[in-house]
C-alpha cells in the first residue's frame, strides 16, 4: 500500500511538471520536460553513474562517521558529567553556526577531494544524531539501571545491554534526519569546490546550458536520497519491532 501511494504521488508530480512545461511553453534550457530529462539520463548513463558513485560514497562515509561521532559524544556526555558541562554548550553553539558558510573553509583546509565533502556531511548530521542519542540515553528507565546494579553489572555492560538499546528509538529519529540532510552537506561541498560528484556535474551542466543533464543529475541524487532514507527507516523498523510507536508513519 505504501509503495502504491509513493507511485501515485510520483506520477502526479511528474504529471504536474509536464503540464507546466506544456502550458507555460518553457524553453528546454529553462525547464525541460520529464521526457527530455529521461533521455538525458539514458544518453549520459556512464557519466552520471561515475559522478553519482563519488557523491554516494561521500554521503555514506559522512553518514557513517557522523553517526559514530554523534553516538560516541552522546555516550561520553552521559557517562562523564564534566564532559557534559563542556560539550553541551559547544554543541548548541555549533548548531547556531550556518554549516554551509563553513564549506569554503573546509575546501581550503581539506582540499578539492572527498575529504571536505565528507566533513560537510559529518558536520551537518553530527548535531541531530548527538542530540537524539543523548536524549535517549538520558531517559533510560532508572528502574532498569537499579535492577542491573543489583545483578552486579559493569557500567559498560549496562551501556551495551540497556542504555543503548533503550536509546535506539530516539536515535532512530536522529538517523532519519541525518539520512535526509547528509546529501545536502555533500552536494553543497561539491558546489563550493570539487572536480567530481553530482554537485560538480550539475554546476558544470548549468554553465553549459545543459539543463536536461542537470535535471538528470538532480533526479539521480533525489532517487538516492529517498532510497537512503527508506533503507534507514526500514532498518530502524526492523531493529525496533518492540517499539511500534516510533515507526515512521510514512
Amino acid at each position: 500500500m505504501k509503495i502504491v501511494r509513493v507511485i501515485i504521488t510520483m506520477t502526479v508530480l511528474i504529471g504536474i511538471w509536464q503540464a507546466i512545461v506544456w502550458i507555460a511553453k518553457t524553453p528546454p534550457y529553462i525547464l525541460p520536460g520529464p521526457g527530455r530529462v529521461v533521455s538525458a539520463l539514458i544518453d549520459n548513463t556512464e557519466l552520471i553513474a561515475s559522478h553519482a558513485l563519488y557523491t554516494f560514497a561521500e554521503i555514506l562515509l559522512g553518514l557513517a562517521i557522523g553517526t559514530c561521532l554523534g553516538v560516541t559524544s552522546a555516550l561520553v556526555m552521559t557517562r562523564f558529567a564534566p564532559a557534559r558541562r563542556w560539550l553541551l554548550p559547544v554543541l548548541v553553539v555549533s548548531q547556531a553556526l550556518p554549516v554551509f558558510a563553513l564549506a569554503p573553509l573546509l575546501v581550503l583546509w581539506l582540499g578539492y577531494g572527498m575529504g571536505s565533502k565528507v566533513a560537510m556531511a559529518v558536520l551537518i548530521i553530527f548535531f541531530p544524531v548527538t542530540a537524539a542519542c543523548y536524549d535517549g540515553l538520558r531517559h533510560t528507565n532508572s528502574g532498569w539501571i537499579d535492577l542491573a546494579r543489583t545483578m552486579g553489572a559493569s557500567r559498560s555492560a549496562v551501556i551495551r545491554n540497556i542504555r543503548l538499546p533503550a536509546a535506539l528509538p530516539a536515535l532512530a529519529s536522529g538517523l532519519r534526519i541525518a539520512a535526509a540532510v547528509a546529501p545536502i552537506g555533500a552536494v553543497v561541498g561539491e558546489w563550493v569546490g570539487s572536480s567530481k560528484g553530482l554537485g560538480y556535474l550539475m554546476l558544470h551542466a548549468n554553465a553549459r546550458m545543459q539543463i536536461d543533464l542537470m535535471f538528470a543529475a538532480l533526479l539521480t541524487l533525489a532517487v538516492f536520497a529517498i532510497a537512503l532514507y527508506f533503507s534507514i527507516d526500514r532498518l530502524m523498523k526492523h531493529l525496533l519491532k518492540w517499539h511500534p510507536e516510533t515507526l515512521s508513519r510514512l
Binding site: G143, A148, M151, G152, A157, V158, P165, W242
Partner: peptide, 24 residues
C-alpha cells in the same frame, strides 16, 4: 520492583537470563 522492569526488546527467555547476560 513494583514495575516488572522487563526489557521490551528482549523476549521472556532473554529477560530471565538478563543477569547472566550482564555478567557475560
Amino acid at each position: 520492583a513494583q514495575q516488572d522492569l522487563l526489557l521490551p526488546w528482549l523476549d521472556v527467555l532473554d529477560n530471565v537470563m538478563l543477569g547472566a547476560r550482564l555478567r557475560g
